[in-house]
Amino acid sequence: MVRFDDVWLRYRHGGRAPAAEALRGISFEIEEGGFRWLTGPSGAGKTSLLKLIYLAEHPARGRIEILGTRAARVTRREAALLRRRIGVVYQDFRLLPQLDAYDNVALPMRLARRSEAQVEADVSEILRWVGLAHRLHARPDELSGGEQQRIAIARAVVARPKLLVADEPTGNLDDEQAKRLMLLIMALNKLGTTVIVATHNTALVEHYPFPRLGLEHGRLVYDG
């Protein structure tokens, strides 16, 4: 489960420049196994909110609970172990350029020290799911934007995370691929994974009517 209680986030720019407030007094709760769309215009704070969820930022104020753990109270080691239970699809993919598609997808499993046999079985399966079983050995710079995005999605879900956080996961996908991706995410959600997807794609939100968190100027303006 994910719980925010009056959470504020400020970005410091160094020097005497005033800190920019990215999020202001955000409070919401997503139950275990829930699904939320995260919507709002550019600059509303969607990516900032997701960063707090996957522990890439510390809040200036407020209380955050991720998968039953108070984010402020974890040690560095506990934070790393908590991150392993969170799958993240980054807006800019963040694939490792020196690794091929297979090794990029295998990365979370290897960090979690899963056996190579299990890595091979799960990575092969997920690459088939995203339609890239034939691109195992391609490096990111040899893949199209859509293919890179699918690899990023495969990497986020391969270790069957308890929480999946996706930032514009369908941004570079055509309708067919986006539909296929949503099927995958919903399948994971049915298996108990809590899902939060930030998107601009209103058609997608309308087509899959899950509850929505709406952000504007760093404030939560809609929850339902």
Binding site: R83, I86, P97, L107, L111
Partner: peptide, 16 residues
């Protein structure tokens, strides 16, 4: 640094 930040975000321990 980008690679390390990504790996760190995926749950790599400092010791890893």
């Amino acid at each position: 640094h980008e690679t390390i930040e990504t790996v760190h975000g995926l749950g790599a321990l400092d010791s890893d």
